[in-house]
């Protein structure tokens, strides 16, 4: 089908994209890798000698690293739990023949389009402020003591904000998948006298399995580098209570000017992301052939 002529043309047209992405990824990543093996601090002049794995050693043995790793996992885990379960429930609800379905759908997906910095500041101030925030006012009107969110449960607060931003994504994808479930299949099960409970667990949930996996993988990749929400609310604190890997690398590089240490951290983040990416890529690749 494709002649020799078009094939060489095609190569020519593919070239700019490939070249640019190669420069964008390979070159900086190579530099990060190089920096991670030498002595390099912007504040300490001196020869940039090769130091082997000692940058990795210092980064990994820093107590802040373990805390950051745990915090990263808590943010990812908590957000996934809320968005996947909430997303399934919301998708089921929105799939029903409700009045004003289109408008409810718009309301539900809106948080996804809010700037991360806006979402974080609005939640921190107007929702979670211990005195004037909406939550505090609701708590007081119910006769409860208001919670000082960012002082007593800072990591949970950030997780909630991030979950609010990602819930629409999960809902939208699960709803799309749900709507491709054939009505006949469901009706047949109903005819056979299947209860609503078993229809959900034996027909709907298996049908959604693929979409749920995609949601988990894509969210994990993005959530590994939650950054803006932390920067504008807690700046990683108190202490390192809300510092995740991404924030730790940022602090090491741009606040402490430790280029080498930050680079080692960056490489560790890349390795973590790749573990997830391998599974995601395999799923997408399989779909490409179908």
């Amino acid at each position: 089908m494709a002649t020799l002529h078009t094939r060489s043309l095609a190569r020519l047209m593919m070239a700019p994209s490939v070249a640019m992405l190669f420069l964008w990824m390979a070159v900086p990543l190579g530099m990060t890798l190089y920096f991670s093996f030498i002595r390099y601090n912007l504040l300490i002049p001196g020869p940039r000698s090769f130091v082997g794995f000692s940058n990795y050693y210092y980064f990994v043995t820093d107590p802040a690293f373990v805390a950051a790793l745990v915090n990263t996992l808590v943010i990812i885990g908590g957000t996934l739990l809320i968005t996947v379960i909430g997303g399934i429930l919301l998708a089921l609800l929105l799939d029903q023949p409700i009045f004003g379905q289109g408008i409810v759908r718009l309301l539900v997906i809106s948080p996804f389009f809010v700037l991360p910095t806006v979402a974080a500041l609005v939640w921190k101030n107007m929702m979670m402020n211990p005195v004037y925030g909406v939550f505090a006012q609701i708590a007081r009107s119910l006769g409860l003591a208001p919670l000082d969110w960012f002082a007593s449960v800072p990591l949970l607060s950030i997780t909630l904000i991030v979950a609010w931003q990602w819930l629409p994504f999960a809902t939208l994808i699960l709803l799309t998948a749900l709507q491709s479930l054939s009505e006949e299949q469901r009706e047949a099960a109903e005819m056979d006298g299947a209860r609503r409970f078993s229809i959900f667990f034996y027909i709907i949930l298996p049908h959604l399995a693929r979409a749920i996996t995609v949601v988990i993988l894509i969210e994990t990749i993005f959530l590994l580098t939650v950054f803006a929400e932390i920067l504008v609310t807690t700046n990683g604190g108190p202490g390192v209570a809300t510092t995740n890997i991404a924030f730790l690398v940022y602090a090491q590089a741009l606040l402490q000017f430790d280029v080498a240490g930050a680079s080692a951290g960056g490489i560790i983040a890349v390795i973590l992301a790749n573990i997830v990416a391998v599974f995601l890529m395999r799923m997408i690749g399989r779909n490409l052939e179908a």
Partner: peptide, 23 residues
Amino acid sequence: LLMWMLSTKMMPPVGVLVPIYLL
């Protein structure tokens, strides 16, 4: 090639923050 392009999107930005900032 397509899969490789996609893989660049899976790279966490902190992995290249330092060199990009310096460049």
